[in-house]
Design a protein around this nucleic acid. Sequence first.
RNA 1: GAGGGCGUAGCUCAGUCGGUAGAGCAACGGACUUUUAAUCCGUAGGUCCUGGGUUCGAGUCCCAGCGCUCUCACCA
Length: 518
Amino acid sequence: MGIDPWGGRFDDRRPIGEIRAQAGQIVYRLEDGTELPIPDQVGQEEFDLRQWKSEQGKGQLAGPQVRAAGRIVLQRRTGKLIFVNLRDWTGEIQLFIGKKQVGDADFELAKLFDLGDLIGVDGMLAYTNTGELTIFAEKLHFHAKSLQPPPEKHHGLHDAELRQRLRYLDLFYTEGVLERFQKRTKIVQSIRRTLDGQGYCEVEGPTLHAIAGGAAARPFITHHNALDLDLFMRIALELHLKRLLVGGMERVYELGRVYRNEGISPRHNPEFTMLEVYQAYGDYQTMMDLTERILVDAIEAIGGNYRIPWGESTIDFTPPFARRTYDELLAEHADVDPEDDVAVAKVAAALGMDTAGKHPDVVKNFVFEEQVEDKLIGPIFVIDYPASICPLTRRKQDNPAIAERFELFIEGMEIANAYTELNDPDLQAELFRTQLAGLPEEESMAKMDHDFIRALQHGMPPAGGLGIGIDRLVMLLTGARTIREVILFPLLRPESTGRAPASDSGGSAASEEPTSPP
RNA sequence: GAGGGCGUAGCUCAGUCGGUAGAGCAACGGACUUUUAAUCCGUAGGUCCUGGGUUCGAGUCCCAGCGCUCUCACCA
């Protein structure tokens, strides 16, 4: 037919949502030229547009000329007449394609349309006899052929694996998916706006680290060939941002991906997005106020409803959020005196922990995680943590056993973690050195980093620091029950396992890194 | 890593007691100029996840593996 199936420039088309908003311009034009407005009830089931027209007298509907483009999601063919439902990311609209109206050539083209094809149309916006807002096609354009069949038109994609592997289909065909990711974008934009508005400076730190510090997690290991150096993918943003505090960036943040080589679960993906914020001359109270501000602004950005549905229940984000101390909550939910190490150890043992040789604070924190965290429906700030599980945190001046730290919990999930940052290089070095009793290295946040200590020795201003798990925040704000619903491409095992590919190239690892001659 | 569930057509799913593999949608051919998951007639489409076992006979029962998923553990 001489039609290029792969289209071309068409960027003067209008979004379907905008076109639908032009419905008010449609009028009924009588033969004598008088124009009557269309009744508001048009499109409602009880309203018969055909009957209304005959009551007004002979005439025709007339509406604005429009140009649209999108994907074909439904088709109904009735001989010399084809109805097409066209969708773009702003909405969906019906096309009326009549053989007489578009001509033989375009009608032949329309007969070749498949579900999933991307097409464009020029035509007049009006209503069909049944009151459906419709573009009456005058000229058709072809933009891209879909060679693969789309998902089942009524049920869509149900299979959870396919939804993630074929995320592009999930985005287009599963209701609410595109909207949720658009909300994610709005939330992230709002966070940047909040911070930028308060004078914070956004930076990009390195993602390849010689020492994976700043958190407790197993890192991914990679290798730099030219330097013949093993490197770690970062597990946190913390230590480099603090170096920037030393350098005089007094308000600084990074919103970036971190990588942790650990399990995958409804709340964990190996790569996820963290926000970390540092403010010179602030402390953890400053960060608590900032956290609340960030959340409130983000909620405003996605519609401003403070009560967000979560499964059967509702999360109430109305500020201010509750603030309770760690010990208070431990006493309340675990029914134990937090000052009494022996009693706490007893509870831990009853919960199945081997307490022998473990630091009392580690034992206490085990009880907290087991007995308290699940009950923190929140939003609630848990403040003042046992010092020895917080090696990067400043101690309270009047009580060195307590660290100036808070975590924000919502629905039992840890959403934010903040400290008054430790800026004493000697104490920091000591805490790095002192391995917590009974904790294997990978479970401790303490990792010796001489370069970081040297930075502290040059003087880091006292500061508040804050980390927020963006994916989990988006889960809560969009009602997503798994982290995979808020990550566009969550980690999946590659599809081609088991059979085919291994055999044809022998050692596949070797073939990826061709050995160059010496 | 442990336990449960699932794996059948491109998609969504049935498949009885172990007895020749099914439907809807999508595709293909035909009818239809106001349809709404259009309708009607017809055609084609299968490594029943893989491998073994029991049996005269396995989609179905048993074992192992692979993949997905849920719960738990580690972790944020």
